[in-house]
């Protein structure tokens, strides 16, 4: 059984996403951000950092999170947490976010599932990944795009740098919007994405 811990930054959108239905059952334990430094993460197969967890609070934990991965854990990093600021060799380019393409009649994001065989993508379609974009990763070395578009990667996996553990990081920010009771597309994405975390064991 895959054991999953999520880190809670104490915000309302973290609380709603991590601790309330329909996704509370996707996580075994919730660890408050200020308790992470005092917590042994090694019992968990997956540690999940939700969207907009304050970068200033994650950065001091970078060594601990790196050791967690090199010890065999999978770290899942969601959007707007800026992993390029606290992990090595992450190349991220922010973009001007167009929240309004659907109002203005403009083309919206055009993502592709680059690795449909990836366990997190078992139920996720390209259409599920469409709301807006905050930026792109530019994979290098062993980083593999799992979701991508013509500009770069929206979700990457690196199964070598931290072997036997791995890093999965996305630029998509569904936890923030679902947790704010805003943007139903993000709830739909999470309904397909979060249950699949159990497949990462």
């Amino acid at each position: 059984m895959t054991r999953i811990a999520a880190v809670d930054g104490g915000t309302y959108f973290h609380h709603h996403t991590l601790c309330e239905e329909p996704f509370a059952g996707c996580f075994d334990d919730i660890i408050y951000i200020r308790d992470v430094a005092f917590t042994d993460l090694s019992p968990y197969d997956v540690v999940f950092l939700p969207c907009r967890l304050n970068t200033h609070q994650i950065a001091p934990l970078a060594d601990q999170l790196t050791h967690y991965m090199t010890g065999g854990g999978t770290l899942v990093v969601m959007g707007e947490t800026f992993p390029e600021r606290w992990l090595k060799d992450i190349d991220f380019t922010p973009c001007e976010t167009n929240f309004w393409w659907w109002v203005e009649g403009l083309p919206g994001p055009a993502p592709r599932i680059a690795r449909p065989e990836h366990p997190l993508m078992a139920d996720v379609t390209a259409k599920d990944c469409i709301w807006h974009l905050h930026g792109h990763f530019h994979p290098k070395g062993p980083q593999v795009p799992v979701i991508e578009d013509d500009e770069g990667a929206l979700l990457i996996e690196d199964a070598e740098t931290y072997a036997p553990g791995r890093l999965i990081a996305t630029t998509l920010d569904p936890c923030y919007h679902h947790g704010s009771h805003f943007m139903p597309a993000t709830t739909a994405f999470l309904k397909r994405f979060l249950p699949a975390l159990r497949k990462l064991g």
């Binding site: 809670d8 104490g10 915000t11």
Partner: peptide, 8 residues
Amino acid sequence: GMHSDQRH
């Protein structure tokens, strides 16, 4: 604001 850590 909306990003506040309410546990804190």
